[in-house]
Simulated scan of single mutants.
Amino acid sequence: MCDLINEAGKVKLLALDVDGILSNGQIIYDANGIETKAFYVQDGVGVKALKKYGIKTAIITGRKSPMVEKRAKEIGIDYVVQGRDDKLVALNELLADIELSLAECAYMGDDLPDIKALQSVGFSATVPNAHQEVLSRVMMVTSRTGGMGAVREVCDLILKGHGVYDDYIQQYVL
């Protein structure tokens, strides 16, 4: 765990896939054919905590969804890239724009389109129900699944790596 915390301490940007990471991976249509997604509140608190300590966040997803834009705005995601199947190309373009390296980036993804990005960053994480090929190629597998606190686990680890976790928690306790 110490090595993971040390690696997480180098992270300046956390990039997230959506389906299976920020959400549980289900695509639900209501009776009118409107797509809905569910997001986990604790993940949002974790993303906001990263922002407080100057760690940038991004979403890189292959699908396009107005719910993703809404959730990203609500929790303060810095960069949203939608409709991009080649996650590594999209990530490299984003990093070039904000002048960060892959080594300074963490990426969370759960399926085959995420593998190249996961293999290229300084810190990679996935969820326990990720595709088997993803599970074998990441540094960290969270204990929680996507849309149920997995992102929060990684956010907390990054805060620990930066040495600010205890400071962050102190604002909530007596």
Rank of each mutant, 00 (worst) to 15 (best):
V11T: 01
G149Q: 06
T36S: 15
V11S: 14
Y79G: 14
R63E: 08
V41M: 11
A150W: 04
T145I: 13
H162W: 06
K12Y: 09
I5A: 12
I115H: 05
I115F: 01
T142C: 12
Y53H: 05
A117D: 04
V138I: 07
E93S: 10
G62F: 00
Q82R: 09
I77M: 04
S136D: 07
V164K: 02
D78H: 10
L95T: 03
A38M: 11
K160E: 10
A117Q: 04
G76E: 09
V121F: 00
L50N: 09
T61V: 02
I115G: 04
F123A: 08
I55D: 00
V45N: 13
E99S: 08
S124H: 00
M67W: 08
D114H: 02
S143I: 11
Q42H: 08
D3I: 14
Y29M: 15
P113I: 07
L157A: 07
T126V: 05
E74T: 11
Y79A: 11
A106C: 07
L91I: 03
G76Y: 08
E153C: 01
I77G: 00
G163C: 02
V11Y: 03
K160M: 09
A103C: 02
D3W: 08
C105V: 05
L100W: 01
I28T: 13
Y165L: 09
R71H: 06
Y172W: 07
D166P: 01
D110L: 02
K73I: 07
L4V: 09
L118H: 03
D17H: 00
I55N: 02
V41R: 11
V41S: 11
E104N: 06
Q132Y: 10
M108V: 02
T145Q: 13
Q170K: 12
Q26I: 13
V154S: 03
L135C: 03
V80W: 15
A96G: 07
N129T: 12
T145S: 13
M140N: 06
F39N: 15
V68E: 11
I27D: 15
L50K: 12
A106S: 12
A117I: 12
S65H: 09
K37C: 05
Y107L: 09
N92I: 08
L95V: 01
G149P: 00
V154Q: 10
V81F: 08
G44R: 13
A31E: 11
G122R: 01
V18L: 09
A96K: 15
L174Q: 11
N6I: 12
A58G: 06
L22E: 09
L94K: 01
E74M: 12
Q171N: 14
Q42A: 15
S124V: 01
R84D: 09
R71T: 12
V11A: 02
M108R: 02
I77N: 11
H162D: 05
V154C: 03
N24F: 10
I98Q: 07
E7K: 14
E7A: 13
L16A: 07
V81D: 11
V134R: 05
E93I: 15
Q171P: 04
D86F: 09
C105L: 07
V89R: 12
D86K: 15
S120E: 06
I21Q: 00
K48F: 06
G161P: 01
I21L: 00
V164S: 00
D167W: 06
N6D: 13
K48D: 04
I59K: 05
L16P: 08
A125P: 01
I77D: 08
